[in-house]
Design a protein around this nucleic acid. Structure first.
Lengths: 156, 156
DNA sequence: GAAATTTATATTGTGCACAATTAAATTTCG
DNA sequence: CGAAATTTAATTGTGCACAATATAAATTTC
């Protein structure tokens, strides 16, 4: 009789066996494909992510943006200053709590949303995935990230 | 009667809908989980990838390393200089073709392979994936990267 | 209500990524 | 052959990521 059980991952140091490298390489390739589309909007890929969050909900603080994107102030502060220089958003301390810096889209920042709407359509065509395959892969990656976010000392 | 066909991806600018962000976030989380393991070896994550390639096949040129990892000399040259400083490898121009720089592991570089063998085991435990799920996700990512590597002007 | 602690952002420093350019060696071809 | 084109690394400059630290405001503790 056969035992049907989940086989353990066999540890390997060969590059082609690694999940981490497949992830790292795919992520960089993805950014590379976005680059020409975002160049047209004068945005880098991380700047595009920030704008996407703000188009969805304006007036977030740096901390809230950081939670959404999993980035800290060391990354966000200079990035937001560049977007401010580009007149896409404003940064000002909150009256209610002077520690917090509220990020608000300018008219140009809102306006950019329209031009950005082509980007997801272009990428959807470029990916050659069905909606189901797209969602499945995306959700697998979300669940992987969630598993990797669990502290090492409190696991199954 | 129902038509069963592949549905198109619905374009969206909402962060949570994006495959690219799931990929980007998962990749950074993965690197973050590797960090404490690699700190013990005094390697960064990209340095670990370079060492993995060299453990598999020593004596590659910068170009060959770059092809394997999809990184250019602008990234590799300073990274390799740091590994040279750390006495893990040597860099020297090839006699046969002075344009090429051959990378050779030192004794310490080879020695590090043993200590690195714990890393994949630790990660395998940390991931909580069956061998099948691991391979499936890895191969989906490889196929995604391959699709994204196809030039935009020559596609299905 | 002063002191200690926590929270939010900014700053500094290191190490990638990657575009663009440069320099040197090699190959191609008239 | 020898000039032009190609190839390989290195260099320069910009923009993330992220650790560590600093600073200032708010909150908690006593």
């Amino acid at each position: 009789m056969l035992f049907l059980m989940k086989a353990r991952i066999k540890p390997s140091l060969l590059l082609d066996d690694q999940l981490c490298f497949a992830l790292y390489a795919a992520s960089r390739r993805m950014t590379a494909v976005y680059r020409p589309l975002l160049d047209a909007l004068d945005l880098t890929y991380p700047q595009y992510l920030v704008m996407m969050v703000l188009w969805e909900r304006d007036g977030l603080t740096v901390r809230e943006l950081g939670e959404r994107l999993q980035l800290d102030s060391g990354t966000l502060t200079p990035l937001l200053k560049r977007l401010e220089q580009a007149s896409l958003l404003g940064r000002r301390r909150r009256q209610s709590d002077e520690r917090e810096v509220e990020i608000t889209l300018t008219k140009a920042g809102h306006k950019l949303h329209e031009r950005a709407e082509d980007v997801p359509r272009c990428m959807a065509e470029r990916l050659c995935l069905s909606a189901d395959a797209f969602k499945h892969l995306r959700d697998e990656l979300k669940s992987l990230a969630a598993q990797l976010a669990v502290p090492t000392d409190e696991r199954d």
